[in-house]
């Protein structure tokens, strides 16, 4: 009899403990949920503050000129595509399509040139020993730290002497000569993290340095190369100063200059056209960014640099 009562005591104690544990677990779950809700609320709030100008831009591009300044909200009262239609026509003899084409003509050779030249230079720095290597690499880093503005005037004079003004050459050539120290540095860092065994295996297999680079190193470097191309694409797309300095004919303007053009030439600014074209201008960069987010992150983390 005693045994039974003892056993039942044990059971009761066990059940109590179980109930207590469950209660504890419930409290913890609730806390975790509240904390998650808080986190998301803050993230959403801050995200909204940062994204608002962009959202407003998109909204405003569908507003009439009168409404843009009258209505601070981003949802247009009377949505219209007038901004897009008229903006596309521009005040020049060319449509905005021409300017997109020009941007493309600048970006494509520049990106390809960057990828090829920076890979070669980074491969050299990361894998070969040659005289003055340290000094040269230090100068790459020094260039990285140098503000772009400092070299603008000497570069301008140089390209003027070469007779390259009002052509795309000043925009292409420096990049095709691995002039973007940032990319060289990024690729060197990425390469340093890749063991060189595969390259040695390639040498034993009979590859020369170029074949090793092409068949073995470049495929392994692909994630970094993709992010180099993406960065170069976005930066070139957004570059305003370069084309402004070197390109003077309107028929060669890229979109970044074309946007400014519509502000300059119109006395009363047609804001909805400008905003509409701004939306179009950022679209390719945004699309590319969202499609290739993964590589961006990989590229940034590999280089150990914040973008």
């Amino acid at each position: 009899m005693t045994d039974i009562s003892q056993a039942s005591d044990v059971f009761t104690a066990g059940a109590d403990a179980l109930a207590e544990a469950r209660r504890h677990q419930r409290i913890q779950q609730r806390r975790a949920r509240i904390s998650a809700i808080m986190r998301y609320a803050i993230l959403f709030g801050v995200g909204l503050v940062m994204l608002y100008p962009l959202i407003w831009l998109v909204g405003a591009s569908f507003k009439t000129n009168a409404e843009i300044f009258a209505n601070p909200g981003f949802i247009p009262r009377e949505p219209t595509t007038e901004g897009y239609v008229q903006g596309w026509e521009t005040s020049t003899p060319y449509t905005f399509g021409r300017f997109f084409w020009n941007s493309f003509l600048i970006i494509l050779p520049k990106t390809i040139g960057t990828a090829i030249s920076c890979t070669m230079v980074a491969y050299g720095f990361a894998r070969f020993d040659f005289p003055l290597k340290k000094l040269l690499f230090s100068s790459v880093i020094a260039i990285l730290l140098l503000p772009n503005v400092v070299t603008r005037i000497p570069q301008y004079i140089l390209f003027r002497e070469l007779g390259w003004l009002d052509s795309f050459l000043p925009l292409w050539v420096p990049s095709a000569m691995a002039g973007d120290a940032f990319f060289v540095f990024m690729l060197v860092q990425f390469l340093r993290a890749i063991p060189d065994d595969m390259e040695q295996a390639a040498r034993v297999d009979g590859c020369n340095s170029w074949q090793t680079l092409l068949f073995v190193v470049v495929p392994m470097l692909a994630p970094a190369l993709i992010s180099v191309c993406l960065f170069q694409f976005m930066w070139t797309m957004n570059d305003f100063l370069g084309p402004l300095i070197y390109i003077s004919s309107v028929d060669k303007y890229p979109v970044s200059l074309a946007l400014k053009l519509s502000i300059d030439t119109t006395e009363a600014f047609e804001w909805n056209r400008i905003l509409a074209m701004s939306v179009l201008t950022i679209t390719p960069a945004l699309a590319v960014f969202f499609m290739a987010q993964k590589y961006f992150i990989e590229g940034i983390s590999a280089g150990g640099i914040k973008g």
Binding site: P195, Q200, V204, M220
Partner: peptide, 12 residues
């Protein structure tokens, strides 16, 4: 011909 410690196969 050489066989490496960590195989050194071409990953791609």
């Amino acid at each position: 011909a050489m066989v490496f410690q960590n195989y050194a196969l071409y990953p791609h």
